[in-house]
C-alpha cells in the first residue's frame, strides 16, 4: 500500500525525521523545495535533520532553465498565469457576494422555518460556486496542456529524463512548503504526479496542500477587508477526501462557532485536516489517519476536535 504522509509546518517544529522513521522508509529521499523559489537549494537544514542522502530535484531552477531556453513556452506560461489570475479575480467577486449573503441571512433573523431553508440554499450557492471555480481552473489548465503539451517539448526533455533517473534512486519523496501556487505549477510542469506515482511521499505545509484534490487558501485577518477562504485549484489528488490546512492557528479564526461550522459545511464531503506545526497524519486506503497529536478537524456543530477516521 502506498503511504502518503501530510505534515504541519516544519520550520519551528521539525518532526519530519520522526515521521520518516515511524513509517519505516529506508534509503535516500528525493526532495522538492520548489515552493521556496530561489531558495530551493538551501536544503542543508533539511539534510541535517533527515541525516540521510537527499536528492534535490531543483524544480524551480529547472523551470527557470526551461523558460530561458524556450521563450515560447515561457510566454505561454506567463499568459496562462495571467488568465488564471483573472479567472480567480472574477471568482473573488462572486465569492464576496456569496459569503456576504450568508452573513446577511444570519444576522437577519426571523422564524427558523423561513430562515433555515434560505441559509441552506445560500450555502449550496457557495458550494456550487467553489465547485464551478475549481472546474473552471482545471479546464483552463487542461486546455493549456492540450495546446502546449509541455511534456513533449524538447526544452523539457532532458529535465524529464533527469527527474526520471533521480526518481529511480529513491523510494521516498519529500515535498516542502512555500508558495503553494509556484509549487503546484512546477509539480505539474514536470509531471511529478506521474513520475512519483508509486513513491512514499512526505509533504508539509504547502507541499501537503498540493497533494490533495482541492487546494483551499485562507487567512482570516488580512490587512484589508475580510479574508474569505478561497478554493485555488485542484491539487494533484494523491490524497483524497481532505482539505489540508497547515498554519491554521495563525490564519483561521475559530473564536466563533459559525466560522468553524462554515468550514465544515462548505467543503464537505471533504474533511478539513487542520495541521498543527509539527503534526502528521498518514493517508492510506483512502483514509487520513492522525499519527501525532495536533491533527484537527472542524465539526458539523462548529467545534475544533482531533481528527479521527
Amino acid at each position: 500500500m502506498r503511504r502518503i504522509v501530510l505534515l504541519g509546518s516544519q520550520r519551528l517544529q521539525p518532526t519530519l525525521v520522526q515521521a520518516v522513521e515511524s513509517v519505516g522508509v529506508t534509503g535516500p529521499i528525493v526532495a522538492i523545495t520548489a515552493g521556496w523559489e530561489e531558495r530551493e537549494d538551501e536544503i542543508d537544514e533539511l539534510r541535517d535533520h533527515l541525516g540521510r542522502r537527499v536528492l534535490n530535484l531543483r524544480l524551480h531552477h529547472r523551470g527557470e532553465e526551461v523558460f530561458e531556453k524556450d521563450p515560447e513556452l515561457f510566454r505561454a506560461v506567463r499568459d496562462r498565469r495571467q488568465t488564471l489570475r483573472e479567472a480567480h479575480d472574477l471568482y473573488r467577486i462572486r465569492l464576496d457576494r456569496a459569503i456576504q449573503a450568508l452573513r446577511d441571512l444570519r444576522t437577519h433573523g426571523g422564524p427558523h422555518a423561513l430562515l433555515d431553508p434560505a441559509m441552506l440554499a445560500a450555502l449550496d450557492d457557495l458550494r456550487r460556486l467553489d465547485d464551478w471555480h475549481v472546474a473552471r481552473m482545471a479546464e483552463i489548465v487542461r486546455e493549456w496542456d492540450e495546446r502546449w503539451r509541455p511534456s513533449e517539448r524538447a526544452s523539457l526533455a532532458p529535465h524529464l529524463r533527469a527527474i526520471e533517473a533521480i526518481s529511480r534512486e529513491a523510494e521516498t519523496l519529500a515535498v516542502a512548503g512555500g508558495n503553494v501556487a509556484v509549487l503546484l505549477n512546477r509539480l505539474r510542469l514536470f509531471g511529478i504526479d506521474r513520475t512519483f506515482s508509486r513513491h512514499t511521499v512526505f509533504a508539509w505545509s504547502a507541499g501537503a496542500m498540493t497533494l490533495t484534490e482541492r487546494i483551499v487558501v485562507y487567512h482570516d485577518d488580512p490587512p484589508f477587508g475580510r479574508g474569505n477562504p478561497e478554493v485555488l485549484r485542484p491539487g494533484l489528488g494523491f490524497v483524497g477526501g481532505v482539505v489540508a490546512l497547515p498554519h491554521w492557528h495563525r490564519r483561521i479564526r475559530t473564536d466563533h462557532v459559525n466560522r468553524v461550522r462554515l468550514w465544515h459545511h462548505r467543503f464537505r464531503p471533504l474533511r478539513c485536516a487542520a495541521l498543527d506545526d509539527g503534526s502528521w497524519a498518514v493517508f492510506g486506503d483512502g483514509v487520513l489517519r492522525a499519527v501525532s497529536n495536533g491533527v484537527r478537524t472542524f465539526t458539523e456543530d462548529g467545534r475544533v476536535e482531533d481528527l479521527v477516521p
Partner: peptide, 18 residues
C-alpha cells in the same frame, strides 16, 4: 503601517505556507 504597507506592496498572504 500594516494597512498602508499592505496596500502599497501586498504580500502573497494567501499563497505562502512554509
Amino acid at each position: 503601517l500594516r494597512q498602508g504597507l499592505g496596500w502599497l506592496f501586498p504580500g502573497p498572504l494567501n499563497l505562502v505556507y512554509e
